[in-house]
Design a protein around this nucleic acid. Sequence first.
DNA 1: GAGATCGTGCAATCATCTTGCATGATCGAT
DNA 2: ATCGATCATGCAAGATGATTGCACGATCTC
Lengths: 311, 311
Amino acid sequence: MIDSRLHVLRVVATRGTVTAAARDLSYTPSAVSHQLRGLARDLGVTLLEPDGRGVRLTAAARILLERSDELYARWEEIHAEVAEADPEASGAVRLCGFSTAAAALLPSVAARVRLVHPQSTARIIEADPAECFDLLLAEQADLAVVIAVPGLPSTTDPRFEQESVLDDPLDLLVPADHPLAARSSVLLREAADESWILDRPGSTFHQLTQTACATAGFSPFVAHEAAEWETGAALVDAGLGVSLVPRLARLPGGYRITRVPLRGDPTPARHIRSSIRRGSRRQPLIATALTALGEAARRTTAGGPAAPSYG
Amino acid sequence: MIDSRLHVLRVVATRGTVTAAARDLSYTPSAVSHQLRGLARDLGVTLLEPDGRGVRLTAAARILLERSDELYARWEEIHAEVAEADPEASGAVRLCGFSTAAAALLPSVAARVRLVHPQSTARIIEADPAECFDLLLAEQADLAVVIAVPGLPSTTDPRFEQESVLDDPLDLLVPADHPLAARSSVLLREAADESWILDRPGSTFHQLTQTACATAGFSPFVAHEAAEWETGAALVDAGLGVSLVPRLARLPGGYRITRVPLRGDPTPARHIRSSIRRGSRRQPLIATALTALGEAARRTTAGGPAAPSYG
DNA sequence: GAGATCGTGCAATCATCTTGCATGATCGAT
DNA sequence: ATCGATCATGCAAGATGATTGCACGATCTC
């Protein structure tokens, strides 16, 4: 609704070069260059200046981006008001989230939306947290469920409205015959000397595990890398190490493994947040999805955001 | 910058039918229908409902239009801020106005803009007052100089910012040997029994003359209709009647005619207003043009808006 | 100084929108 | 009630604008 070239400019601003932005947007650098040239012409100002072999945003371009955040938010509010005024508004809501959320939370949200708004459709997109925010901005998704990890937009970012959904506690995954398997709960540092099975470096959960271990005062010895929970479970079953799994992650049966809840202060957990484009809260489909997300979170065995608790 | 389909919807709203809106926009009805269909699809709401053989806007569509006024104004403000941030902003400013303004006021405004902003261009478009507002909304003009006549958007219309520029007093045009020609000023009603030469019915100035005569307490006997000042002057010269001309209108020489200033309370005059899209006041080019317009008004022999005066 | 990376311009290609016409529906007048 | 006029919309063909692929000049790194 608002000129998409503003979004192109925004991506150029965050990525720093036209070429990188083009990659992100699935365009060619030539197309990006052309679009921004046209935008600058329409506005009558210079937006980009050559800077070495890259480009630099002018002051005018930075002001444009800063102010346009508010414009986008205002548009979302208008969209919400308009949708509220139409009793039989149809449309689609697109939910995105990291894998566990996509599996554990979003299906029931989608089902709820379909139930409340029969005219509508709900799509689920599995994506990394950072990618989720890009999807929101590109209007390719309307609601994101992400884990709080460093590098994400802050909760006060004017482009988004974010709120806590759930604290997903972490369990220690050990072989069934492991000394810690009989315990009802353990401190993370009790596993400091174990061999560890982590996700692939660079992944969200790898980072999360490292952070949790660092908080517990040690640095894990990484024996193996497993991208999927299933692989990790198999490796633990084989006695090759221990691992952390979030409570929400459902593990396949058939392995001789045990989940032992972690305790500590605070309890090691993934902080799961919802995020929407600022101003879109009142859109009927999104409002329903947010409510359903909260209910889905409350139904899980994991604790809620305010009072994380377990057994 | 903001989706042009909103403007299409707005024209449909004011004109009442898709076909009429298409005429105004120089589109085919099919194109208008398509655009609004796409807009409704993107928003997920119904915008138009069949109503007889025409269409009716839904409540959602009316809310959309109402709110979008503010969005447009906000965008103009952002545009202004961005342009201010660029010291060498280029661009074009397009000035529109009725014929006399186009001839008497706008050239010096355009010259001033070119002088202050050498990088920029200024275009002048001659258009009727009602048309001027359409040009503003369609972003085909940035500053309009119009006469206050019934049917124009009110001065509080959220889409525009309007202010008085000039009160252009009306003169009575009589043959040089007419009894009133020797007077330094006359009351309009002193010419009540004359034969009158008016502009074509439906034109702005025809309406203005009729209104002035009605205010003076008579209804003029219309002997002839002349669309151009030149034609009117020739008819007066030929002794076929009298006429009203605004002070700003320059008459060609060579006719044996006399302009006699009108007096009265209030002095019969055309109220000339400037109008811009709300929020665009601070755009450098527009700000310069507004200032230059005020100066040009002050330089005229006609009176200013606050203290209309003559001789 | 060589190689790599970057931004931009130009012609060819592709997608999207617009047009023209046909259809179904409604309103007004005879 | 019937005919003609007006209106909105769908579909295929055509036009307009955007994107691509490639080339060039400039810049940075080793």
